[in-house]
Design a binder for these strands. Structure first.
Lengths: 344, 344
DNA sequence: AGCATCACTGTGAACGTGCACAGCCCAGGT
DNA sequence: ACCTGGGCTGTGCACGTTCACAGTGATGCT
């Protein structure tokens, strides 16, 4: 049994200390230790200190598997990406969101499981895993409408908090989002304030909330002067922005400003403008959306609507933990702010 | 007992099916079902098919917590970031690595836990969690030398596979890395091949493997013509590259080529060159390292050494699973390839 | 015929928790 | 003196699985 030839100080073998070991050291029962572990109510002051000391001296850490087995809770949540494209990891916003969620969860001592459900095969695996109860809830990063994963999870009553309006499931799943409509309006207003007359837009995909709502804001702000010919459809990728800008330029040479629905697409648009010898902002002013770290590094530095990503992720975590604790699904809309730089 | 007033088709309440339910349906014992679950050896063909049918009809999925409790294994691994800076999520390489690891792990049906250990507090939490046996192993993304987290994990005999040579722990922890020295040599050779005479370099931090080894390759290739004055120190950030380029330009106006140890820093260097009116590649040729997706989008598009990130992450996962299964720590060095674009 | 071996199957004991329950002691009211 | 109840504590069971072991019947060998 004793593999170690050297004398050992506390425990002969490599076994991790259990709640029983702690109980023995503290001179109490397992039940008391358990009570200390979960809040410390209904336990006498002396027992409390004794147990705490015993925990420290034994180096005890609760076995989460055993706990999960009996409570039926895993104390972990999934960060679920359901995008089919590789785009996900090109777009810096996802990284920021992921990091923010991990941090917010870490503060609550909840581990984050990263899951990707792009292909049907992955989708099956993920829903199996999640509905088997191996996570308590899901932070959903899904943008496209009528996502089948959402339907599956909803059917199994898995707590979900989405990022951005979950098109096709409004009212059925809570979410947190930036105020896309107001943000878009603010940017268009800004472009008008600096004297622009012909303001075009490059939208996101129109089956995503950012796509439709930012277009909506653009349209709302323009009112009667809205002109469908000034709208080009993008796909949130750099290349898409590049292409959409070229289209706009070809179709409507008179435009003097463009509101681009994401910074990444704005980067593409700037590339097109540079290639065609247009000066920014003299000839054409560009406004983006997101304020990802890209924005400040572009030439010229990009004016954009700042989304409070840290806040979004922390609110998502808050909502999800509340949902898990039995609260009703809720919705949080956060304001965006204009960050003016050289491109306008 | 029957809480439901409505007649139900298969199972009265919301309880998830257990191995026992499957056994009853299949007309065998728990043991047999368990054997089917873990490989299916020593079970008769008819029992096998009966169990498989029962699993399907009951919709059974094993409870991982119960399994982990008895086996002592969690069947999950951690993706651990130990960088103190925010840099981590600015650098696109991390995203690619993360995504690759998640994919490779998903194929083996093992979930990935994302953990960040920047601050001392986070460090404590992470080591507690990991050493408590809640993950079977760690994919370590740590670059700086003598990382205290590594020491802690090593002490607890946690299986680790690092990304890049783990400075300070060589020989004690397995890793997979791109061949930095050969890569750097290839780039310098390329710059010489296109006729450049005064080749400078911008290094990574000199307490990281990429920092020292790419500098080493640069020096090796230059041999006797190596000149310490042509070396500027960077920090893997865009801003650092920007600054280092400015220093070089000021100190040594004669340089006609720069090997930059990362694409992100190269982006910064290009910004400085553009600001100072230098033409790339006519006046100064720039070579990067990584071939992150940034490289192709720069103006001019960046010549760079491609690191096989997908391969790196999949090899890391392979090594880690082998390590967990009792194999010895191993090291894998992967080749880099020159990707020539407009900047040289 | 007897016995060993083989291929397979069932059973009981863990694994480390939380929780319901029962029990204890002590103070205070009848 | 008795009950009541509140504060605290210990005990046994359950959670769903794996694993060691014992047991089965059939086959083949001596």
């Amino acid at each position: 049994m004793t593999v170690d030839s050297t004398p050992v100080e506390q425990n002969g073998n490599r076994r991790r200390p259990t709640i029983k070991d702690v109980a023995v050291v503290a001179g109490v029962s397992r039940g008391t230790v358990s009570r200390v572990l979960n809040g410390g109510h209904w336990v006498s002051p002396e027992a409390l200190t004794a147990v705490q000391a015993a925990i420290k001296s034994t180096g005890y850490a609760a076995n989460r598997h055993a706990r999960s087995l009996v409570t039926g809770r895993s104390n972990s949540v999934a960060f679920l990406l359901t995008e089919p494209q590789q785009l996900l990891f090109e777009d810096p916003n996802f990284s920021v969101l992921l990091r923010g969620a991990a941090d917010a969860l870490a503060k609550r001592d909840i581990p984050l499981l990263l899951m990707v459900a792009g292909t049907p095969e992955e989708r099956r695996r993920v829903t199996d895993y999640v509905t088997a109860g191996h996570v308590d809830g899901v932070l959903l990063i899904s943008s496209h409408a009528d996502d089948p994963v959402v339907a599956a999870l909803l059917r199994e009553q898995v707590p979900i908090v989405a990022c951005g309006t979950p098109l096709g499931y409004e009212g059925k799943v809570g979410y947190v989002a930036a105020d896309d409509i107001a943000g878009a309006r603010a940017m268009v207003r800004h472009l008008r304030d600096i004297g622009r007359q012909h303001i075009a837009t490059i939208t996101g995909p129109l089956d995503t909330p950012g796509g439709v709502q930012r277009l909506q804001g653009y349209r709302d702000e323009l009112g009667s002067s809205y002109d469908e010919g000034l709208v080009a459809k993008g796909d949130y990728s750099r290349l898409g922005g590049q292409r959409a800008m070229a289209e706009l330029l070809a179709a409507r040479p008179e435009i003097d400003a463009v509101f681009v629905a994401s910074d990444l697409m704005a980067a593409g648009a700037l590339a097109t403008l540079a290639a065609q010898g247009k000066r920014v902002p003299e000839d054409i002013a560009i406004g983006g959306f997101d304020d990802s770290y890209l924005a400040a590094t572009m030439t010229p530095a990009l004016t954009t609507m700042r989304q409070p990503f840290e806040r979004i992720s922390s609110e998502m975590v808050r909502l999800l933990t509340e949902l898990i604790d039995g609260e009703e699904p809720a919705t949080v809309i956060l304001p965006t702010t204009l960050v003016q730089r050289a491109s306008t």
